[in-house]
């Protein structure tokens, strides 16, 4: 069964013509998004800067009450 599914996908990808270009675009895009943008430009700030939900809550509370 798994072999059959694998062959289905494998043959599908192999016999692609115009689809290859699309896959290249998808992969480049995903690379830029996750390996460049996410890593270097878009950290999840609250996750990065605080270690617990309590600290995160306190920080946002501070922002909301002392804007």
């Amino acid at each position: 069964m798994i072999g059959k599914v694998f062959r289905f996908y494998y043959n599908g990808f192999r016999s692609m013509t115009w689809g290859r270009k699309l896959w290249r675009i998808i992969l480049i895009k995903l690379f830029i998004m996750f390996a460049v943008l996410r890593l270097f430009f878009f950290p999840d700030l609250l996750k990065r800067d605080f270690s617990s939900d309590e600290e995160r809550g306190n920080y946002v509370l501070e922002q909301l009450t002392n804007p």
């Binding site: 699309l22 896959w23 675009i25 998808i26 895009k29 995903l30 998004m33 943008l37 996410r38 430009f41 878009f42 950290p43 999840d44 700030l45 609250l46 996750k47 995160r56 809550g57 946002v60 922002q63 909301l64």
Partner: peptide
Amino acid sequence: AIGVSTGIILEFEFGTNWSNYSWF
């Protein structure tokens, strides 16, 4: 193919640029 996952960028922005909002 070209459009797929462009929406995830919005989620990145929530976490970085709109952190108070995404917590709230």
